[in-house]
Design a protein around this nucleic acid. Structure first.
Length: 207
DNA sequence: GGTAAGATCAGC
DNA sequence: CTGATCTTACCT
């Protein structure tokens, strides 16, 4: 268990995060859907869809650091999305958290998301997940493995009970649109819907 | 200095 | 299907 999985390649790190626990500000949730992202063109995992593809910038700097840190970014000007940095320090890679099942603190999550939201939808979608857990851009760079951090990652012990994950193309990306780097726990209502980017080339085109 | 395109979401 | 809303990155 432990955390060795995070230093590995993105897809392996992503698989190890399914079933893991994400806790923040009174809410604890189990991760059920993730997406793996690689890095620069001449690195071990070239990924044109990754924010780190064009090299380090002020925004993506955290992804070039050690694994186990939180990388947050603002999406479409209004949502915050959360990633777990993976791969060794110096090599950018991350796993986007797309959906989770709220285990404790549902009342708090509901207060943040709204009373009308069904339980299974409270943390469905990367933006909604961050809102439900109270994650903001101020949390960028946090060490998720530090027991005293406001946002923490926990790896459960019941590895044997996990069903085999399903895999498919990542949601909303216009480049490398067919790469099956989205992983989710099957038969889970909290998993978000697949949407291909309108800008992506036709399915089956080159990667 | 200008601008278009997003790793999204909710409401018609 | 479309609008909201704003930062980043890339262009002139």
């Amino acid at each position: 268990m432990g955390t060795t999985g995070l230093a590995a390649e993105p897809l392996v790190a992503a698989a190890s995060l399914l079933g893991a626990t994400f806790a923040c500000r009174g809410v604890r949730a189990t991760i059920v859907e993730v997406e793996a992202y690689g890095g620069v063109p001449d690195g071990p995992w070239p990924d044109p869809a990754a924010h780190s593809y064009r090299g380090p910038t002020a925004r993506n700097a955290v992804m070039f650091g050690p694994p186990g840190r939180l990388y947050t970014y603002r999406s479409y000007g209004m949502h915050v999305c959360a990633n777990v940095v993976c791969g060794p320090a110096g090599t950018a890679a991350a796993v986007l958290l797309r959906a989770a099942v709220i285990e404790t603190g549902e009342q708090l999550a509901r207060a943040r998301r709204g009373d009308a939201v069904p339980s299974q939808a409270l943390a469905r979608g990367p933006g909604n997940l961050c809102q439900a857990l109270g994650i903001t851009m101020a949390d960028n760079g946090i060490d998720l493995l530090d027991p005293d951090a406001p946002v923490r990652l926990g790896f459960g012990e019941k590895l044997g009970e996990r069903p085999a994950p399903r895999a498919g193309p990542r949601v909303g990306v216009s480049r490398a649109a067919d790469r099956p780097w989205r992983l989710w726990v099957p038969e889970t209502a909290a998993v978000s819907a697949y949407r291909r980017s309108p800008r992506a080339p036709a399915p089956g085109a080159s990667d």
